[in-house]
Design a protein around this nucleic acid. Structure first.
Lengths: 215, 215
DNA sequence: TAGATTGTTAATCGATTAACAATC
DNA sequence: TAGATTGTTAATCGATTAACAATC
């Protein structure tokens, strides 16, 4: 290897790649064939210089005077992220949130396939969400290992969150998406990502109180 | 005012405040009365120096040699974020995702009160989610204005996302949480926050492909 | 060739962290 | 008083952006 620098890639770069990917796929659907960093910047609200800079961390994918070939760039970004092949997902929790996630088509479109759903409620076990039959939580370890699933989603009530994460990690899952407000501990080697509407609301709220003055 | 600097607060600081708040509330529940930045750092995985630095943007809330009084700090952080009083929320979309959000107790605990839910499906209109009756989407403008709701959540199918956001903004909403993968445009003065599981999965995925090598 | 746009450097800007004096 | 921990400064580190030569 020569041109491509294999140094640490800044976190911010990795966060922006999915954003680029989303816009690129949209452009591809619209039949566009090339795109400039300027146009990409408009669509993502990100400085074009930064987009170019971000991409050079992984190589040089554009043509001077022309821009980036969309099909190629989609492919490259997917490969960088590891989204160029299918990933099986285990979902813990078959309530409203779990159902929403399992039904969500966007996942499959990006190669994320929910292939196992677990719940501890006997009334839910055996029912179907989409194509998938809800299984009893005690089968988690076996099923996850059998399917060598490496991504898990925690969509259970707060009180059950830590246990769900523990079992997923124990079963060999490497990425856990936590949809619970609970601060979950995971062993080293497991990447945790938290999503909590409260967190996001509180964050945005700050800017609200600055703009209008509350009575 | 003298001590408190009224300069621009870095985005990162505002993002961390909700995290501190979550941990502080947890500590308060456990009956703790004071906490040091060191302990707070352990619980949040954030450098203690940064925590102290972050807080000084808003004043000095601690006691040297002692730490921070938890009750006071919770109160101060809530006030900074604007979370010291109740906010009404309008929810668009009464599907699984909408139901999950409306049922979510964490919201109410932080002063977020879903007081209006809208859907365009006549079969859902009139049904109840928790205490709230689902209303027809065409009533959105009227209801939101009547209740002077300033926060809206979009939990509809992707195709309906832009329209939902447009109507919320039109009705006077200032913060929109978009739970759709669609890149939604909002008028100036409206703050948009996007949450998409795909986005988060793709982001985390990058680190997965670095650690283990895929076959 | 002239125009456009990349890849890359260098300058700026901002955020994180270590260190320590102030002080409870 | 001795020990602990804050508030704050200064140093480091990293990320963003402007600018432009390379080149399609």
């Amino acid at each position: 290897m020569s041109a491509i620098s294999r140094d640490r890639i800044p976190e911010g770069v990795i966060e922006r790649l999915p954003l680029y990917l989303g816009v690129l796929i949209q452009l591809r659907q619209q039949g566009e064939s090339t795109v400039s960093s300027a146009r990409l910047g408009e669509l993502t609200d990100i400085n074009p210089a930064q987009i170019r800079r971000d991409l050079t961390h992984f190589g040089s994918f554009g043509k001077r005077g022309v821009g980036y070939d969309i099909v190629t760039l989609v492919d490259r970004v997917q490969r960088i992220l590891g989204a160029d092949h299918v990933h099986r997902l285990a979902l813990v929790g078959a309530g409203h949130l779990g159902s929403a996630i399992a039904d969500y088509n966007g996942l499959r479109q990006h190669g994320f396939n929910v292939t196992a759903i677990f719940d501890n409620d006997p009334r839910k076990v055996g029912t179907k969400i989409g194509d998938i039959i809800v299984q009893y939580i005690d089968d988690l370890e076996r099923v996850v290992a059998d399917q060598s699933i490496r991504i898990g989603i925690v969509a259970v009530p707060p009180a059950a969150a830590q246990e769900a994460a523990d079992r997923l990690a124990e079963a060999g899952v490497k990425i856990i998406l936590n949809y619970t407000p609970v601060i979950v501990r995971v062993p080293a080697g497991v990447t945790l990502h938290n999503t909590d509407p409260v967190h996001e609301l509180l964050h945005t709220l700050y800017y609200l109180s600055r703009t209008e003055d509350v009575v």
